[in-house]
Design a protein around this nucleic acid. Structure first.
Length: 250
DNA sequence: ATGGTAGGTCTCCTA
């Protein structure tokens, strides 16, 4: 996040969202400098930081009633922060574990942690009274065939295995969330992430939709819209993720 | 069939 401060400010000036949720800050709360964000009107900010790894934040122009942070694995990872806006809408911002390379929890404990984390999200979500609530984040899972460049070639690749996909869909369905970006853009391939390891990301276009915005059903109206800012992947010193945006009339 | 890049830091670990 620190190395991408200028990119974030550029995005905020250009798009001026009311709220920006960040994941994988790789910074402590002390290292998270919010003065520049405050200058742009984001004065209601909440951060859950961690040295070198993880870390999540919510930048907001809208006043917040309170914030909280869940530790779903009980290991101290900074992977969630939630805030309630003054209008009563709660935003949950998650950074789901990436899960390592081998999609087998017997030989790769990181994959087991990922499965456990998403299962804990399902149990948490199931007990919510789901109204006026938005869930966003780097969920590190691309659930649909059109969320990856090749469904068949990624079936055994962490982020698109049936085990992960079914777990994520169980969070979505048991909680009765609406995948608002897919609701708004229902047809065709849709990606939010392109690996750094592919030098020609644009031409090769081997992307995945790892970043998501979900909403409780009561917030889903006819007049909202979503978009993914693909162009941001081509900016100077880009992140491998691009902004996913949704507009709500609340 | 394999390796490719990036960031933060413990010169390696995680993504």
């Amino acid at each position: 996040m620190r190395i991408r401060c200028e990119l974030i400010l550029h995005f905020l000036r250009a798009q001026a969202p009311d709220i920006l949720c960040l994941q994988e800050l790789k910074a402590t709360e002390e290292q998270f400098v919010s003065k520049d964000f405050e200058r742009l009107g984001y004065i209601h900010n909440v951060v859950r930081g961690q040295k070198a790894y993880n870390g999540v934040a919510i930048l907001s122009k809208i006043p917040l009633n309170f914030s909280q942070s869940l530790d779903l694995l009980g290991n101290g990872d900074a992977r969630h922060i939630a805030a309630e806006l003054v209008n009563g809408v709660i935003i949950d911002n998650f950074y789901v574990p990436a899960g390592g390379y081998e999609p087998n929890r017997e030989i790769n404990p990181k994959f087991g942690d990922k499965l456990d984390y998403v299962a804990a999200m399902r149990d948490w979500s199931r007990n919510l009274n789901l109204r006026r609530r938005i869930l966003v984040g780097d969920l590190n899972i691309a659930p649909l065939e059109d969320d990856v460049w090749s469904h068949k070639q990624l079936l055994n690749v962490v982020s698109h295995t049936p085990e992960e996909v079914n777990l994520l869909l169980s969070v979505l369905n048991h909680g009765d969330w609406c995948d608002i970006v897919r609701h708004d853009i229902s047809e065709g391939k849709l990606y939010s992430w392109w690996s750094y390891r592919s030098p020609n990301w644009d031409a090769a276009d081997k992307g995945r939709r790892l970043d998501h915005i979900w909403a409780s059903r009561d917030l889903v109206r006819d007049d909202h819209h979503s978009c993914i800012l693909r162009a941001a992947r081509g900016w100077q010193r880009p992140s491998d993720h691009v902004p996913v945006m949704a507009h709500f009339e609340i």
